[in-house]
Design a protein around this nucleic acid. Structure first.
Length: 422
DNA sequence: TCTGGGGTCCTAGGACCC
DNA sequence: TCTGGGGTCCTAGGACCC
């Protein structure tokens, strides 16, 4: 059986902030979602204060003030760069790395004589070279490896590494894992399982396969098999072709009137087109949506959305923004538009293809010469993001999201580095 | 009143993940 | 006043085909 390891970073965004600011060690720290909306990463000290994952900032202001919680806006430029550095260390310890998320990688640990020793050395090296503490779970399936990782996270006796390749060890530990903590078991499935008395990972492992399939389709059946040590989710170190991409944002100040909304949609579409070109892709379908603040049912509510085909398939900012305008106009309220304040808008692109696979069109307009977009990207790369934008993005940009607590982009912006004098 | 069988493709919605 | 963003996979059901 092939040993699969998963390595994940402890409170990754908080760990990334702590690398460059030692005063954050040992004190409660939280990192906020976009628009400074809610807490999405908490240090152990912040968790101990009872700050929950996803809790809105405006509901915990008192707690923050009372306990001196340090608060950060999310700084994805920084986190993305730190993530790449962590992966580079993993690559020195196994030839096959599957990047699962910004802070988690599956590692192929086959052929090692001393897996635990190897993992311990790797942990020390990641900490030394990046400053990020990580934990490692090892098992014959991804789901079991995630369980092992979770157990190592919660029990310091394992010192951050747990190897569960031995089925007897799994027998012993799985009764301690709550069923809702298993990878793939969400809120709804947990409630169903609770209802029939399945409350631990050991219970779920012993659930009859037919019953699992009836209750939760092949997805739940696979979880059961994986818990039994039979891998159903392949190790995949080649990133699959992505199927869609989205750029959506809440507005710092709610958007009123078509022009303001369309400024934001222009900006999101511009960003989405850049991402397409970065990945060498074109899109075949576009959806534009916008809606009012759903947390305020006392105010007039409206949600608009429109999908269109892109012919020819495109990654050209001008063509995409033109399509986005048609969608936005079509979805715009026919009456009483002035009553609505839109809290969020976004653009989603689907049916993505590598640009070289784009189908030829016979009767429709041919794709535009890419020279203009190449020049646009070159200008914005050299002179900074948004040096050159479309006029319809506007200059006031009142819809920009709130970013009130962002740390410097220490590793990617020279101009952000603190100046030390004397 | 009676009205086949089997296949594919597409979409919307649900559930889950980090 | 203030509540994130970006993904994947699966299923059911409808449209359509012969």
């Amino acid at each position: 059986m092939k040993p699969i390891a998963i390595s994940d970073s402890a409170n990754f965004y908080v760990s990334a902030e702590r690398i460059f600011d030692p005063s954050l060690k040992g004190v409660p720290v939280i990192v906020l979602s976009n628009n400074d909306g809610c807490a999405v990463a908490r240090s152990d000290e912040a968790k101990a204060l009872g700050i929950k994952m996803g809790e809105p900032l405006h509901l915990i202001r008192d707690k923050i003030a009372a306990h001196g919680v340090r608060v950060f806006s999310s700084n994805y430029t920084l986190y993305g760069d730190i993530s790449r550095r962590v992966v580079a260390v993993y690559e020195d310890y196994t030839p096959n790395v599957e990047i699962y998320s910004i802070d988690e990688c599956f590692l192929d640990f086959s052929g090692l004589r001393d897996r635990v020793g190897h993992a311990r050395t790797m942990r020390r090296d990641v900490l030394l070279r990046t400053g990020v503490p990580v934990r490692v779970g090892i098992a014959p399936s991804k789901t079991l490896a995630k369980c092992a990782n979770d157990i190592a996270k919660k029990n310091p006796i394992f010192k951050g590494v747990l190897d569960m390749m031995d089925p007897k060890l799994a027998d012993w530990l799985l009764p301690l894992v709550p069923v809702g903590d298993i990878w793939g078991i969400g809120r709804k499935t947990k409630a169903k399982l609770d209802g029939i008395g399945i409350t631990t990972a050991a219970d779920l492992r012993d659930m009859p396969l037919r019953q699992a399939r009836a209750m939760g389709t092949v997805v739940l059946e696979r979880v059961v098999l994986e818990l039994q040590g039979e891998p159903c989710i392949a190790f995949d170190d080649i990133a699959p072709q992505r199927k869609g991409m989205a750029v959506t944002r809440s507005a710092g100040i709610p958007m009123q009137g078509f022009d303001t909304l369309f400024q934001a949609i222009t900006a999101h579409t511009t960003r989405a087109a850049e991402k397409l070109r970065q990945h060498g892709l074109v899109a075949g379908t576009m959806t534009v949506f916008f809606h009012t603040n759903r947390h305020r049912p006392d105010r007039p509510q409206y949600a608009g959305s429109r999908t269109t085909r892109l012919i020819p398939m495109s990654n050209d900012t001008l063509q995409l923004v033109a399509a986005a305008k048609r969608c936005a106009l079509a979805a715009w309220p026919k009456v009483g538009a002035e009553r609505y304040a839109f809290a969020k808008a976004g653009v989603m692109l689907d049916d993505l293809l590598p640009v070289e696979d784009r189908p030829k069109t016979l009767f429709d307009a041919p794709p535009r010469d890419p020279a203009l977009m190449i020049a646009l990207d070159a200008v914005n790369r050299r002179f900074g993001k948004k040096t050159m934008i479309l006029g319809s993005e506007g200059v006031s940009q009142s819809w920009q999201m709130r970013v009130e607590h962002r740390s410097p982009r220490y590793t990617t912006r020279l101009s952000d580095l603190p100046v030390v004098r004397g």
